[in-house]
Simulated assay, not measured.
Amino acid sequence: MSNWIAACAAFVSLVALYFSYAQFMLNRRIQREASQPYVVPDIQPRAGGSGILVFTLENVGPTVARNVKIAVDPPLQGGEGNDWDEKLRVALGRELSHLPPGRRLEWYFTFGPRFYQLSGDLPRQYTVKVRAIGPSGPVEEMSYLIDLDLMQETALERETVVAKLGEIAKQISKRR
C-alpha cells in the first residue's frame, strides 16, 4: 500500500513539475515578447479630413527596432505618377538602421478622393512584411494586410480643421 502511495505521489510531483515548467516557459515568452519592438505599417489620412493618404511606419513597442526591412506586395501605387510611387519604393526599400519606440515615419502615398475616383487599375490591398532586430535578437517577421477599400467611405473628403477655422475667421471679420 505504501509503494502505491509513493508511486502516486511521484506521479503527482511529475505532473506538477511539467505544469510548472510549462508556466515558466509561457512567462518567459510573454516577458520576451513584451520587451520586443513592434513596427506597424499602415496607410492612413495625413490629418483628420485632409484627404492626403500617407504610408506610415511606427514602432509601437517599448524598445528600439534595429535593421528594419519592409517588403510590400504588390508594389505601392498611389496613381499620382510613377515618380511618386518610385520615391516611395526607394524609401521603403532601404533598411532602417533603427526605429526608436514611439517613432512614426510618414511618406506621401496619394490624394485619397482622387485615388478612389480612378479606375480599378490600382491595387487596393497590400501585404506588408516587416523584419527587425530587437534587444533579444531577430523579432518574428510580421505580416500586415492593408485594405484601402475599408477607407473608401470614411471622412477623406471632409474639410480640414484649418479650412474650417479660416471660414470662422472670415465670418468674424465680416461682423466687425
Rank of each mutant, 00 (worst) to 15 (best):
R29N: 09
E58A: 09
S173V: 03
I70E: 03
E159R: 13
L99Y: 10
W107A: 02
M25G: 01
N59Y: 03
P45W: 06
D147L: 12
R46T: 00
I146G: 02
L76R: 01
E80Y: 06
G120Q: 11
F11N: 08
Y126A: 08
K170T: 11
G93Q: 02
V60T: 15
E140V: 12
A91M: 10
G120T: 05
Y38P: 01
Q44F: 02
L92F: 04
V90D: 11
G112F: 03
A65Q: 05
S50W: 04
N82L: 14
I172T: 10
A9Y: 00
T56I: 13
V40K: 08
G61C: 13
R175G: 02
R176P: 00
R124I: 02
Q171G: 13
K170H: 12
T63I: 01
W84S: 07
L118C: 05
V68C: 14
Y116C: 07
L105D: 12
T63Y: 04
E140S: 13
V161Q: 06
P41L: 06
G49V: 09
V15I: 10
I43Q: 06
Q171W: 02
E33T: 00
S2F: 09
I5A: 15
P101N: 13
C8Y: 02
E167I: 07
V161L: 08
M1C: 03
I43A: 02
L92G: 03
V161D: 00
G81P: 10
Q171I: 07
G51Y: 04
L26H: 10
A10T: 02
T127D: 04
R66C: 07
S143V: 12
W107Q: 09
R175T: 09
L26N: 08
V130K: 04
I168G: 01
S50T: 08
R176H: 10
E80I: 03
R32E: 12
F11Y: 07
A9I: 00
L14I: 15
P74L: 10
R124Y: 05
Q125H: 12
R46L: 12
P75D: 11
V128E: 05
T127W: 04
R32I: 14
I146N: 05
L105E: 07
S20F: 15
T63W: 00
Q77Y: 03
K164V: 14
L150Y: 03
E159L: 14
T63A: 15
G61N: 10
P135W: 04
